[in-house]
Simulated assay, not measured.
Amino acid sequence: MTEPVERPVLAAVAGRRSWSKVTDVAPSDAELLEVLGAAGRVADHSALRPWRVITLRGDDRVKLGRALAKAEGDSKPSTKPLRAPLLLAVVVSVKKSKVPAWEQEAVAAGVAHMVSLLLDDAGWGVFWRTGGATRAKAVRKAHGLKKGEELLGWLYVGGKPGNARTGRRKTINAKAHLSSMP
């Protein structure tokens, strides 16, 4: 009789969920470096590593709230960045290469998702926020983005609340998303 094979990566991916509410604890920079080192192993045509991550803690989040308000034409700073103790701004840094920009953006998005998965597996709550403001001039300036860089969004990171429901998301109907070449 064959022993069942343990598949921890499959279990981690299947158990991942977004945590829109988190506590005020967050991973250290040392923990982030370990996660980024692993996340950087995503498929990357020509090994360009066309991405970087900016940490926002403390007053950095207030600065982002002001930039979001400016981008959205509001006079009052947005409180959205204060919903987590740590925000990770995921930036695509497009390199001059034969590799098209869209493919480089896909790499950066892959890194963002991998970071989210790794942090979730390490016990942290993560929620990926995007929106039109990611491309706004005030938000670009607040993050110090350079020419050829675009913000893909922020990973809001904090502790998983103890009283939160830990139910799994519904499994997708994979058959609806898989087909053969016509």
Rank of each mutant, 00 (worst) to 15 (best):
V94A: 09
V94F: 07
V94P: 00
V94N: 01
K96P: 08
S97A: 06
S97L: 10
S97K: 05
S97C: 14
K98M: 08
K98C: 02
V99N: 00
P100V: 14
A101W: 06
A101L: 04
A101G: 08
A101F: 10
W102L: 07
W102A: 13
E103R: 02
E103C: 06
E103D: 07
Q104Y: 04
E105L: 05
E105H: 14
E105K: 11
A106H: 04
A108W: 07
A109S: 11
G110R: 01
A112Y: 00
H113I: 09
H113C: 09
H113E: 10
M114R: 15
V115H: 02
V115A: 04
S116L: 05
S116C: 13
L117G: 01
L118A: 07
L119C: 09
L119N: 02
D120Q: 06
D120I: 00
A122M: 07
A122V: 00
G123M: 08
G123R: 03
W124T: 01
V126W: 00
V126R: 03
V126L: 04
V126Y: 01
V126P: 09
F127T: 05
F127E: 08
W128D: 01
W128K: 01
W128L: 05
R129D: 10
R129C: 01
T130R: 10
G131M: 15
G131A: 15
G132F: 06
G132C: 01
A133Y: 12
A133D: 05
A133F: 13
R135A: 13
A136S: 15
K137G: 14
K137A: 14
K137P: 07
K137C: 08
A138F: 11
A138T: 09
V139N: 03
V139I: 09
V139T: 12
R140L: 03
K141P: 02
A142V: 14
A142I: 03
H143K: 08
H143V: 06
H143P: 00
G144D: 11
G144I: 13
L145R: 12
K146E: 15
K146P: 06
K147H: 12
K147E: 15
G148I: 12
G148D: 10
E149I: 14
L151T: 03
L151K: 03
L152V: 10
G153I: 12
G153V: 07
Y156L: 07
Y156A: 05
V157P: 11
V157T: 10
G158A: 10
G158M: 10
G159F: 06
K160A: 02
P161F: 07
P161V: 13
P161I: 13
G162A: 15
G162D: 13
G162F: 09
